[in-house]
Design a protein around this nucleic acid. Structure first.
Lengths: 231, 231
DNA sequence: ACCTGAACACCGTTCAAGT
DNA sequence: ACCTGAACACCGTTCAAGT
């Protein structure tokens, strides 16, 4: 019998894989799905990877960059086809933006991270490419389209950062409540405009507001020329 | 000689004032102006107030609420007159929004806090009141105006959170650089739209973009009716 | 009611030293 | 080049105990 050296002793764990950026980010995504972005810390991640936090700095510059990488990974879930929207560029674009918003709504804290550290991974680039392509079918000028993509993404991201925070985190629920209460409690004499606009100011469903925001931006973008650049 | 018991020993400090929400927030503002919002922590603040962190929780629910209070205090610096804008509601509104953006640009981290925990203090209410008043002079519907105020504030806040972060914090500078580099390095075959829009996508001065954003939103808001509410 | 010391359960990041 | 242990310098929040 030939002696086959079975590496049995190295088998207690699923064979601790070599560290790599890919493996680090995938693990971070797994932690986020299971316990939220708040748990995706350098220390916790290192623990999960069976190493010390210092080791991660070979592959990731800092926590913000790590979160940006997690976001990019999540963006792989966005439906870029706009298939649900039907035929026109506008409806397809709406469907893509709705899908993007949906992904962020499911991972509230990620939206906040996106506003701070912009992603630059492949999924983000694919998303930008697709939105540019659809928006340019509006016939608007090149610069309007370029700047417009930014506003569309910013608006959706900011809404997700605000709105969905409220739903998941009881601490932030309070802040929104406080704002609503403050708006209701306002003195009609000193704040006539708030009083006059009051039900609407805090009303409306999330989806109505999202749809309206989208229309506002698209209408604005295609009708507002960029300022002439001076040399 | 009469023995006069001088309370000299109690005089090393300016007579530690009683704790109060007001005093806590003012101290927080002072720390922020001197060292940035990052230093406005419960522990650091308690130290400055010569007490333990637990004492603050009598007046402030948590760190997010504290930051919201600091922001509201800062909003007192916004010029609500819109005096610089001249006569029309549009120009005055632009001036108010520019002033608001300016305040946030000087305190980058505060803009991020604003997206998460909305303020509800007197200065915030005054700002909302003023923007509502100006925007309603456009003649747009009540609901459009109410929802429009939200979008105007959100857009300005998000831009400040993104843009000014970059200027002050070297760590985030890298993320923007990475995004710009990624957009430049893109393959023209797989990402034709990015390539076609490339100089514009990352170009434009901050103030040109802000001005254009404002016009886009105002144009969009006044021309886009809100969806009919079903009962 | 207000205030506090002390504790619990964490953080990010760096650096000298090893392989 | 990659990896690590250990350290530095912090966090937010709670709670039992005091006044």
């Amino acid at each position: 019998m030939t002696a086959r050296r079975e590496p049995i002793s190295r088998r207690e764990r699923p064979a601790k894989p070599a560290l790599s950026r890919r493996w680090i980010v995938d693990t971070a995504v797994r932690i986020m799905r299971a316990e939220g972005l708040g748990k995706v810390t350098m220390r916790r991640l290192a623990q999960e990877l069976d190493t010390g936090p210092a080791s991660l700095y070979v592959y990731v510059a800092n926590t913000a960059e790590l979160h940006a990488a997690v976001l990019d990974s999540l963006l792989g879930e966005v439906d870029l086809t706009g298939r649900d929207g039907g035929e026109g560029w506008r409806e397809q674009l709406r469907a893509v933006m709705t899908s993007y918003t949906g992904v962020l709504f499911e991972h509230p804290q990620l939206a906040r991270a996106a506003l701070v550290a912009r992603p630059s991974g492949e999924n983000y680039l694919r998303l930008v490419e697709r939105i540019l392509d659809l928006l340019s079918q509006s016939g608007a000028g090149r610069e309007q389209v370029a700047w417009g993509v930014d506003k569309l993404l910013q608006s959706a991201t900011a809404t997700a950062a605000e709105q969905s925070t409220r739903e998941h985190d009881p601490a932030f629920e309070d802040d929104w409540d406080a704002t609503v209460r403050a708006l209701h409690a306002v003195d009609a004499a000193t704040h006539p405009a708030i009083t006059a606009h009051m039900p609407a100011l805090v009303g409306g469903s999330v989806s109505d507001r999202l749809r309206w925001s989208f229309d506002v931006l698209v209408n604005g973008i295609v009708h507002t020329p960029v300022p002439v650049v001076e040399d």
